[in-house]
């Protein structure tokens, strides 16, 4: 029962804390523009060489073009393939991508396990799910293990990485390695990942752990479940939650070139923010100190 509750707590914590983090970033005040080109929201032609609406004379009179397709493609390329790392630091990409692909496979594996909890391998659909679960599970275990070991070694050996890596960052990688390695050890005695389905069956109340393992759960499985749950609770509180940050850094920071035109949403937000009270902890330099009334409006 403890493990079942723990699995639910881990899952809820992971999603809950991730969404809370996203909420915290989202409610921060609108920042000054940080456009950095190329921006995929621009027209197809311009997004390729980095052009923008500023290339038009009287740009403010022209209709704005929002290339949603371009943005989605670029965002997916970055999220799914870490495109910039592939282009600009290919040697690191192979290791980093192994780890990330392993994590994506683990997420897919989890979804498949929930489906597999309901569907047996007898039907065609069920057998496809069954096979995919095995493929995803093996990919997750192997790629995460290889990626985590690779990144730990790279950080230990290469001075330019070592000098900037904190103990916590080694710990994060080691934690992920423990999860994937323990998963592989469980898999060695359970090639079809039945244990995974047993976890989701227990979580969904279909069949408890006690029913699935009448002779007791293997210790390594208990360790793996505890590690997996713990890492899910831990991730949102660390920089490993960059899956949240990445949306904001791209979409809300360097790709946000929405101009402040009369009547626009941006203008409304500026008007709203201009009504905020003056900061209670204002800067202390002489030129920030109280000035003649005419200059006060500027300070705000």
């Amino acid at each position: 029962m403890f493990l079942t509750i723990f699995c639910w707590v881990a899952l809820i914590c992971f999603f809950g804390a991730s969404f809370y983090k996203a909420y915290k970033f989202a409610k921060m005040p609108m920042h000054g523009r940080q456009d950095l080109y190329p921006i995929p929201l621009e027209t197809n032609e311009r997004m390729h060489y980095g052009g923008s609406y500023y290339e038009d004379d009287k740009w403010y009179e022209k209709p704005r073009h929002h290339n949603l397709k371009g943005e989605i493609i670029d965002m997916l390329a970055e999220m799914l393939f870490i495109k910039k790392l592939f282009i600009h630091q290919n040697s690191l990409w192979w290791i980093s991508y192994a780890l990330h692909l392993g994590i994506y496979a683990a997420l897919g594996w989890t979804v498949l396990l929930f489906i597999g909890a309901f569907v047996g391998p007898a039907s065609v659909f069920g057998s496809i799910i069954y096979l995919l679960t095995i493929v995803a599970g093996i990919m997750a275990g192997v790629l995460m293990t290889v990626g985590a070991i690779g990144l730990i070694l790279k950080r230990l050996i290469k001075p330019e990485f070592k000098n900037y890596t904190t103990p916590q960052e080694y710990f994060n990688l080691f934690f992920l390695l423990c999860v994937s390695a323990s998963g592989l050890l469980v898999w060695l005695g359970d090639k079809s990942f039945e244990y995974g389905r047993n976890i989701t069956r227990a979580m969904l109340g279909i069949k408890s752990f006690a029913e699935s393992y009448p002779e007791g759960m293997p210790i390594i499985l208990i360790v793996h479940i505890l590690l997996l749950g713990a890492v899910m609770i831990y991730i949102p509180f660390t920089k490993m939650s960059h899956y949240v940050g990445k949306y904001f850094t791209f979409h809300k920071v360097i790709w946000d070139n929405e101009p402040n035109l009369p009547g626009s949403k941006i203008e409304s937000e500026i008007i709203k923010q201009s009504k905020d009270p003056k900061p209670s902890n204002q800067w202390s330099a002489p030129h920030y100190q109280p000035q003649p009334a005419s200059e006060e409006a500027v300070q705000k």
Binding site: L85, Q89, K239, H242, F248, T249
Partner: peptide
């Protein structure tokens, strides 16, 4: 409150650097 013009972008850069050195 004091640095609202950059705080979101700054916090993101403060928190998420993976030190990949790209």
């Amino acid at each position: 409150e004091t640095n609202k013009g950059i705080i979101q972008a700054l916090n993101l850069s403060m928190e998420y650097c993976a030190k990949c050195n790209t």
